[in-house]
Nucleic acid binder design. Structure first.
Lengths: 217, 217
DNA sequence: AAGAAAAGTTAGGATTGCCTAATTTAGATT
DNA sequence: AATCTAAATTAGGCAATCCTAACTTTTCTT
């Protein structure tokens, strides 16, 4: 069985691996908040359970089994987040941290009930797609707001979920999944994007704009 | 902070201590499914955090702090059980085990939402009282069905929660919290109790009858 | 291509919570 | 009071997961 630590390593590798390049020890260490030495040790252990392949000094890659395990943890995480927002009414900026703990402890039976109660939802509160039971996941077709030029318009499809302050700010300015956005201008020197969202004009810093994905229309 | 193991030890001591006598190392070991040697070690550690007082060779007692901690864990456990039954629709015989894991991981915020959503309930699905936030708990006035004589009548107030098979059986025969029961007879040789519950006459073994508490009317 | 810098690994330790085996203490028996 | 037994404790280990410090390999610079 995979421990909580195992699941967190696999999930982090999955996220860093998008595109199938090998993930470096230091990138993984940074993502998990541990030292590279700890990562080296865990990778040796995890490669024994066939969820990943580690080539010394060359990085890690998940196996098919590891990828499935990662997607199952992500499914749990996202269903739990949505459940906490929709059923328990928790604020969307706090559910990421909660789900981070619960995802390792909720049984399949509970997860299944949540899925049914929520009507087999496709996305979590931040717009991220929820993988299916067997590891299928919709590839989202969005572009970062930071990369759009003046004149572009579209719908917010997803926002970065980790930073509560950022999420509260995004709610404040109505820049949440589903919102219609039009790009008025992009300031060349610092990347600030000027947009219209729900009838109001806003200036959005480059940092914020790169945490918001838009599906252009 | 108290770890999961800490919480389980404190909860077990609380349960074994009802009446305030000291709890023996071996009783605790049996309740927790570990060896007495492990208990000795943990007690030394726990006494350092002022939740209990351990007198070597004489047993343990919770301090006021320990008692509060125990009641808070029990509150979590029972609220979670009820939530799983009422909101997620899990069968009442499976929620004990689930709550046993979740009680250590659910945040105070989530617990508070569950409490509100359930309307500040007084008892869990097995009829056990839910302690308040600050450790107050209703003392239940029930008597074991096994101790009642012919002619007694009353309402099921609580049933033992740990054995799923027993719980399924109790549902089958409608002997669940709230049910009206009349004792027809008690067989002297093996303690079998003959009762009427929801219009039907049933024979209930002594073992089962001592897992059911009745509030006589 | 040599040497320096960066990245990665190994070695050795700490902590938590469990185990078995050996020893000590408390309490009962004679 | 001496002895026996049952209960409890200590000693010494193990597995997981983290750490720091030392060492090795790779990569970059010149």
């Amino acid at each position: 069985m995979l421990t909580t630590a195992d699941q967190n390593y696999i999930k982090a590798i999955y996220r860093l691996q998008l595109g199938n390049e090998a993930v470096s020890t230091s990138a993984l260490a940074a993502a998990l908040g541990v030292t590279p030495a700890s990562v080296s040790g865990m990778l040796r252990k995890l490669s024994r359970s066939n969820v990943l392949i580690h080539q010394r000094y060359k990085g890690v890659r998940l196996t098919a089994r590891g990828r499935l395990a990662a997607l199952q943890v992500i499914r749990r995480h996202r269903l739990i987040e949505l459940f906490l927002v929709e059923i328990l009414g928790l604020p969307w900026d706090s559910v990421h941290k909660e789900a981070e703990r619960l995802e390792h402890v909720v049984s399949d039976e509970i997860l299944e009930r949540m899925d049914v109660l929520l009507g087999h939802p496709a996305v979590d509160p931040h717009g991220a797609p929820i993988p299916s039971h067997n590891g299928r996941i919709a590839s989202h077709a969005g572009v970062r707001l930071a990369e759009l030029d003046a004149g572009a318009r579209g719908t917010v499809s997803e926002v970065a979920d980790h930073d509560p302050d950022l999420l509260r700010y995004l709610s404040d300015i109505r820049l949440t999944p589903g919102a219609e956005v039009a790009v008025i201008d992009r300031l060349p020197f610092d990347g600030t994007v000027v947009i219209t969202v729900s009838g109001r004009q806003q200036h959005v810093s480059a940092g914020v704009a790169s945490a918001v994905w838009i599906e252009t229309t």
